[in-house]
Simulated scan of single mutants.
Amino acid sequence: MKKIKVGIVGLGRLGRQHAENLAFRIPNAELLAICSVVKEEVEQVQKEWGIKYGYINYDEMLENKELDAIFISSPSGYHCEQIIKALEAGFHVFSEKPLGLYLDEAKKAAEVVNKYKDKQVFMLGFMRRYDASYAYAKKKMEEGAIGDPVLIRCYGLDPSSAMKGFLKFAKNSYSGGLFLDMAIHDLDLARWYMGSEAEKVWAIGGAYQYPEFKELNDAETGSAMVKFKNGTMGIFVAGRNCAHGYHVETEIICTKGTLRVATVPEKNMVTVFDETGARRECSQGFLERFEQAYLAETQEFINCIVENRQPSVTVEDGVLSTALGYACKESFETGELVTVK
């Protein structure tokens, strides 16, 4: 069996998960190279996992002709530049979301992706589409089981326990803010489920417990209401201060019924009985909740290369989700109703 040789850039929380999947869980992939600006990370992973090549310079990794594909899991602000460089160097490319932090750079990246799409695979990391529950909900909708969609409601809440780490990251690396960094997954799902692009957005939010968010011109917790071009509606809540854990929930109200995904963000099927009563424990992070989805999307990327086909998630999904996320950000910052460009 031919193995696709991959180099990954970015070894943070998510990058490390992707690297482990490529190195140990994808039979037809080989993690041949790793890259991080943190030299100690590269040296540690190389030694512990036996990775052949280690780099602290991305451009140097792109000179490695043994590689077939580049996996981008670096901070969001580097995505577009790194995508373009990797494609122009002749590699297949997977990039984590978002495609870009600004619409102009996302459009430029899309032009390059489309230039090479006949020869190279490009995939964007909207992993929720590969989660079994979300995929099942989409299947039920396509079957017409609950009629036509009317409204989608999405919660995306990060655990309070991650706050210290996030603020440290945000002060040193621009993430794009709450709507582009966090809510982008829900905005993509809404486009996917509702079968339409956004038309108008109104977003609000604030810094309620952590004033540092105001200093960052960002929201600790925010919400947005979206009108889609086909007349359907979306309500989105995103936050970084969820006391009970990692809470991602989606509800789709249709003309003949309703679908809900993860109404209670349960860790597993276990009920704990102790002195506090009966309780169901909650997931404590995105890596735990979407572990199988990350694996499935990575396997799909490798399969696309082997089978010489493009994935169902397109670069246009990245551009249009960025446009919607940026409109939410603009509305939050100005307090005005924004027409999505």
Results as ranks from 00 to 15, higher is better:
E88V: 08
K256T: 15
A219S: 14
C304H: 03
K341R: 14
E297M: 14
L216D: 00
G205H: 08
L124N: 00
C282T: 15
K47G: 03
D188W: 13
F179S: 00
A109Y: 01
G156H: 11
E297S: 03
M141N: 05
A278V: 14
L31D: 05
L32R: 14
T276F: 06
C328F: 01
I305C: 01
P265K: 14
H79N: 13
I56F: 09
A198D: 06
M269D: 03
R13E: 07
G125L: 11
I235A: 12
A183Y: 01
V113M: 10
E43L: 08
K85P: 04
G156I: 08
G77E: 15
E307Q: 15
Y208A: 02
E220P: 12
A106L: 08
K140N: 02
A323V: 07
I26G: 01
G90Q: 05
T255I: 12
V45T: 12
G177S: 07
K140T: 07
V306A: 10
A19N: 07
G231K: 12
K85R: 12
E43V: 04
G325T: 00
A162M: 11
G195C: 06
Y246K: 05
G222C: 05
S95Y: 05
F179G: 00
E275I: 02
E111V: 13
G285P: 06
V306C: 08
V42G: 13
Q292N: 11
S283M: 05
M1S: 10
M233T: 06
L180R: 00
H92G: 13
A135R: 14
I26T: 12
R153N: 10
V121T: 15
G277Y: 11
F228T: 05
I56Q: 13
G257E: 10
G318L: 11
D104A: 15
F228P: 01
